[in-house]
Nucleic acid binder design. Structure first.
Lengths: 222, 222
DNA sequence: TAAAGACGTGAATATACGTTCATGAATATC
DNA sequence: GATATTCATGAACGTATATTCACGTCTTTA
């Protein structure tokens, strides 16, 4: 009997799907085009996956698993929050350099891709949310980080900035948007470095105000 | 002769298109469905617009114009940066409460919607980029804001946070993502307020370091 | 009031795409 | 080497939808 598709070939198919879906979303990608890209026939797609949506979910799972692996590898050790953030940033940057389509695909599901897809993504987001919140809460306890803000919101803003940096490196629109701000030859390295400086201040109150004003409200001015 | 569509009707059509395109992107929306929503026949759509893409661009233009108007109304007066930011935040929040689809549509074109659509969006983004950068540079000159970072990047991070807040209020995925962090009953007001605190610190270095270290690099730790 | 012109209508058309299935090639078994 | 079995192939089918156009209706004009 003819051999089944090798595992590498199956991964190749998933990658082709991810690339296709990442470009214009679920509807824009066509099964025939995906098959052509992967160097197989449409029939094979339907032998391995029930239909387009099923295949889409498989692509998504594959992509999110990779993302989750990165996140897991950068578990917080005993270290300063900003050291952790710097490590995270570097890993994410490496990841999006190697697999830009994965980031683009993630971005796609943020505005399309049915309830099932959304739930998958929310699993990863949820894990990140818990992780970041915990790390930040610890840093607060250690007196490293301001205590006048809820750690959950600090984590939220932190993740927002991380996400936008990812998108700005991988997604077409956000890339040129960054160029609008920073000029054509955007040095991602430098942007990441500056983001750390930005975060450092954001996580800190002026030193004489840490520990002193657990409910700071609006104090004077900048 | 039968009267042409009133101007209100034409706006209604645009709004129907915006709502439809905002939901699942260009491909997911169907002309027939849009016509039904607007209470007209498909024929009319093709009398007023050459084709689907032309209509899409018209929707986009209409939507972006509204956004640009808001941005224009909140021009920076002589005031502290954070006062400006607070005003901007409030106006944007009002806008996205009234026209959530406009925000969602904007979000859509960040990952689909051809080169022409992208150029339209970049016009608005470019205007915002220039505006924010200038306001921040002024604040730096006035000694309100740290000088160890490029105003363009400060503006970039600032806009990133604003955008994410908008999305978190208007777009389905981002709404539930915020809920992951902040719990179900997300009080947008409070998130916005806390964002201001976050920004306040981010824009500031510890006071004794303002003006003293124009190239601060990584100083100690949080 | 009648004829002409302007305009909206929605069934009909063409096309693109998801999905299926009859076919044939490759491998295993004897 | 013959047969059976497994699997990929890609043309064919059905459906969805962008687009068109012959028609009907309403308004103007004389």
């Amino acid at each position: 009997m003819r051999k089944k598709l090798t595992e590498e070939k199956q991964l190749e198919i998933l990658e082709a799907g991810i690339a296709a879906f990442a470009e214009g979303g679920f509807h824009a990608a066509s099964m025939a085009e995906i098959a052509r890209r992967a160097g197989i026939s449409v029939g094979v797609l339907y032998k391995y996956y029930a239909n387009k949506e099923d295949f889409f979910r498989a692509c998504l799972r594959h992509s999110l698993a990779a993302l989750e692996r990165v996140l897991g590898e950068v578990t917080a050790r005993e270290e300063k929050l900003l050291t952790y953030a710097a490590r995270l940033l570097k890993e994410l940057r490496d990841f999006s350099r190697e697999h830009p389509s994965h980031i683009r695909l993630y971005h796609q599901i943020t505005n399309a891709g049915g309830a099932a897809a959304r739930r998958l993504a929310e699993e990863v987001e949820g894990a990140a949310a818990r992780l970041y919140t915990e790390v930040i809460a610890k840093a607060q306890a250690a007196g490293e980080v301001r205590r006048d803000m809820d750690p959950r919101l600090l984590a939220f803003f932190f993740d927002n900035l991380l996400m936008m940096l990812q998108f700005s490196c991988s997604c077409g629109y956000y890339r040129s948007r960054l160029a609008l701000y920073w000029g054509g030859a955007a040095e991602e390295e430098q942007v990441a470095e500056e983001l750390l400086k930005f975060l450092e201040s954001a996580f800190t109150l002026e030193r004489n105000q840490i520990d002193h004003r657990p409910k700071a409200g609006g104090r004077g001015n900048v």
